[in-house]
Design a binder for these strands. Structure first.
Lengths: 95, 95
DNA sequence: CACTCGATTCGATAATCATCTAACTATCGA
DNA sequence: TCGATAGTTAGATGATTATCGAATCGAGTG
C-alpha cells in the first residue's frame, strides 16, 4: 500500500490500455525482463505485428504511464513502471 | 490472496468492461451499496443515460462476471461480485 | 556521403462499441 | 383487464481504435 494516487484521467488511460489483450502481452513481456529492460526488437519478434502497430501500442502504454522508454543508440529500451500498475490495482480496490 | 483464478477469457472481458469510465461509475455505485443491493432505477437516476444504454452496460458487467443480478418483482437488484474484482487485481499483479 | 536498420508518422480501412429511438415483454396496481 | 412502469431487444449511427503499407526520420557504419 501507500501507492501513489493516480489522477482520474490516468486511471482511465490505464484501463483502456489494459483492455487490449495484445498490449497486456506486450506489458507482460516487458515486465518479465525485470531489472534489465526489454528491447523493442525482442517485442517485434514475439508479438506478431508490424512495426507501425507495435509503435502505436507502445505509445499507448507510455501515454498511460505504464511503461518508460529510453533510446540506446538506435535501439529502444522499455521498462515497466510497476508503481503505476500497483497504483491502478489500488484504485480498483477502492471500488 | 488466495483469490480465485480467472480464465484468460474472463480476464479480457473484465479489462474491457473496466475500460469504459461510465461502467466503472456504475460498478462503483453498485459497490457502494454493500451488503444490500443497488437497484437499476437508482442507477438510471444517477447515470445520465437511456434505459437501453444502461441495460447494455449492465449486460457487459454481468458478462464479465463483475456483477450479479436478480429480479425482485419488476425491479432489478445488482450486486458487485467482489471476489472476481479481487481476482482481476491479482491477475494484474502477475504482470 | 550513401546505405542499412530501428523506429515513427501518415493516411486509409475495417472492426468494435457506446449511444440513441422505437418497439417489445413483463409485472404490478387500480 | 387496462394502464403504467421496469427492463430488454433490435437496428441505426457515430466515434474510437487496431491494423496495415508506405513514406520518413535518425543513428550507426562502410
Amino acid at each position: 500500500m501507500a501507492s501513489l494516487k493516480l489522477p482520474a484521467r490516468q486511471t482511465e488511460l490505464i484501463a483502456k490500455a489494459l483492455a487490449e489483450p495484445r498490449r497486456v502481452e506486450i506489458l507482460r513481456q516487458i515486465g518479465q525482463c525485470d531489472g534489465s529492460a526489454a528491447s523493442c526488437q525482442a517485442l517485434r519478434e514475439t508479438q506478431d505485428v508490424t512495426p507501425a502497430t507495435l509503435s502505436h501500442h507502445i505509445k499507448e502504454l507510455v501515454n498511460a504511464g505504464l511503461v518508460e522508454t529510453r533510446m540506446e543508440g538506435k535501439f529502444m529500451k522499455l521498462t515497466l513502471n510497476r508503481p503505476v500498475l500497483d497504483a491502478y490495482r489500488e484504485a480498483l480496490s477502492s471500488i
